[in-house]
């Protein structure tokens, strides 16, 4: 029933997720039906409105099913309109038997709920996805953030470590979790381990600008002024390169 998604589509999917604030580097599993590839590409290119029109046409013709409903949700997720995204993801999630479901729905439902500040619903969605795909590092990362929001560093540390362990082939995913683990160590006063983890995170992903920033502040705490200034410079340069939009002057989206 499902065909392998072309490599181009995987790349687009990864970039879409990163742009949406969800640095997930894997293509959706299982892959999308080829009839929906155009819709997905439209979403990834920022043409969410056009994608929604076509998705509605698709559902008028073929009836509602998990994948087009998921893409409807994804089109709003891409626009950072998370309440609308949740509505569609939840419709997609009603197709919850293995023959009809589309598992990434729960992962994105988890992130949409997170961005709406709905911790409990976010937990449930991430956990549901992990039941279907226990090796999904980005859902583990999301659960780690939720644990941090609760001040539960022990649980957060476990989750970030699990996220690292299951993402051995995904350096960017590992890097994010290592940086969060480093943040926990920093908050616990273990600056030497924090420094080590920030360095490891940046070895894995030199574009992780927030890690450069935290590395700088940790150096400063350790009295390493020269290293601090160098890391701050790297933060500024990297942030400008990776997120030029952050340097525009507007209300943050």
């Amino acid at each position: 029933m499902f065909l392998k998604t072309p490599n181009l589509l995987s790349c687009l999917f990864a970039s879409l997720l990163i742009a949406s604030g969800c640095d997930h580097n894997k293509p959706p599993q299982p892959t999308l039906h080829p009839d929906l590839e155009t819709h997905f590409i439209l979403i990834s290119e920022g043409n969410s409105g056009s994608a929604r029109v076509r998705l509605r046409q698709h559902m008028d013709t073929h009836g509602e099913s998990a994948q087009p409903l998921f893409l409807m949700g994804l089109s709003y997720h891409k626009e950072k309109r998370y309440i609308k995204a949740v509505q569609w993801f939840e419709k997609s999630a009603q197709f919850d038997v293995p023959t009809t479901q589309y598992p990434p729905t729960w992962h994105f439902l988890g992130w949409s709920q997170y961005y709406l500040g709905n911790a409990t619903a976010s937990h449930e969605a991430f956990n549901h996805y992990l039941m279907l795909n226990p090796n999904e590092g980005d859902s583990l990362f999301g659960l780690g953030l939720l644990a941090m929001e609760e001040g539960n560093f022990e649980e957060a540390s476990k989750l970030f470590q699990q996220s690292i362990d299951v993402q051995q082939d995904l350096p960017k995913g590992q890097a994010k979790s290592k940086a969060r683990l480093a943040d926990i160590r920093e908050q616990q006063g273990n600056f030497s381990e924090a420094l080590q983890l920030y360095r490891e995170a940046l070895d894995l992903d030199p574009d992780l600008y927030e890690a450069w920033y935290h590395l700088a502040t940790t150096y400063k705490r350790e009295g390493m002024e020269e290293e601090c200034n160098a890391a701050l410079e790297m933060y500024s340069v990297t942030r400008t390169r990776v997120r030029p939009d952050l340097h525009t002057t507007r209300f943050p989206e």
């Binding site: 911790a119 937990h123 956990n127 992990l130 039941m131 644990a147």
Partner: peptide, 18 residues
Amino acid sequence: KWWLIGCLIIVGCDEGNS
């Protein structure tokens, strides 16, 4: 194992958001 972790997380979350 994953079921167990999931349950623990949900319990923890409910308490935290009360």
